[in-house]
Amino acid sequence: MLEELQRLQAHIGVLKSRLTHYETENNALTEASATVAEQHHAQVVHKNGIITKKQEEIENLTEQLTEVQSQFKQLNTDATALADRYSRLEKSCTDLKNRFQDILSERNELRVIKEKMQNEQRHAQQEIQSLQQERDRLLQKNELARTKVETIIQRLSILGTEQDQHAQEIQQLAHPTEVNEEMQS
């Protein structure tokens, strides 16, 4: 029995040593597990923080996307309005170009008319000058004829009474209005 008791004690000693070994291993594993749990918790917290940041970034990007889409719609609206305005301006430009062409053709016609009228004016002035020269020449001729007639009348009046009658007739021919006035008075 003693042998059995010694064997039991040896087994108990081995069991105690194993128990202490397992207890130290258990403590080490518990500490490792706690460390791993803490690390895991820290990673989870870190990952949750990253996820929160990413969600905030997603929300910001979503808001920016909404704003950009709104701006895009506004730009499309503005582009349509500008295209309409451009087409109206292009039409106005075409109308102005046509009007300008009309004005140019009218201006050219007016230039032709002006040149024609200037030529006509020059001709008319030349005619006026020639008519004035003709008038001056005729006035000189008339004055010359008048002086000759008056000279003849004076000579006839000197010739005598018989020829007075002829002088009166000649005077009537030379100055018919004067004779008519004398007869009326």
Rank of each mutant, 00 (worst) to 15 (best):
E134M: 15
E134L: 15
E134K: 15
R135T: 14
R135F: 12
R135C: 13
R135V: 14
D136F: 07
D136H: 08
D136M: 12
D136S: 12
D136L: 15
R137Y: 10
R137K: 15
Q140F: 01
Q140P: 01
K141W: 05
K141R: 15
N142S: 08
N142G: 08
N142R: 12
N142H: 14
E143L: 10
L144I: 04
L144G: 05
L144F: 01
L144E: 01
A145D: 02
A145L: 09
R146C: 05
R146K: 11
R146S: 07
T147L: 05
T147C: 03
T147F: 00
K148T: 08
K148W: 00
V149E: 00
V149K: 00
E150M: 02
E150R: 01
T151S: 14
T151C: 07
T151I: 10
T151Q: 10
T151R: 10
I152M: 02
I152N: 00
I153P: 00
I153H: 04
Q154H: 09
Q154C: 06
Q154L: 09
R155Y: 06
L156M: 15
I158T: 14
L159G: 13
L159M: 14
G160A: 09
T161P: 07
T161Y: 09
E162N: 13
Q163C: 04
D164T: 13
D164R: 14
D164N: 13
D164L: 14
Q165E: 07
Q165F: 09
Q165S: 14
Q165V: 13
H166R: 11
A167D: 00
A167F: 03
A167E: 02
A167N: 05
Q168L: 11
Q168N: 08
E169H: 05
E169R: 08
I170P: 01
Q171G: 03
Q172R: 13
Q172E: 07
Q172Y: 02
L173Q: 02
L173R: 03
A174F: 01
A174D: 01
A174C: 06
A174V: 04
H175E: 07
P176F: 02
T177H: 06
E178S: 04
E178V: 04
E178L: 09
E178G: 04
E178I: 03
N180I: 04
N180F: 02
N180C: 03
N180R: 07
E181N: 13
E181W: 09
E182C: 07
E182Q: 11
M183R: 10
M183I: 08
M183H: 05
M183A: 11
Q184S: 12
S185F: 06
S185W: 03
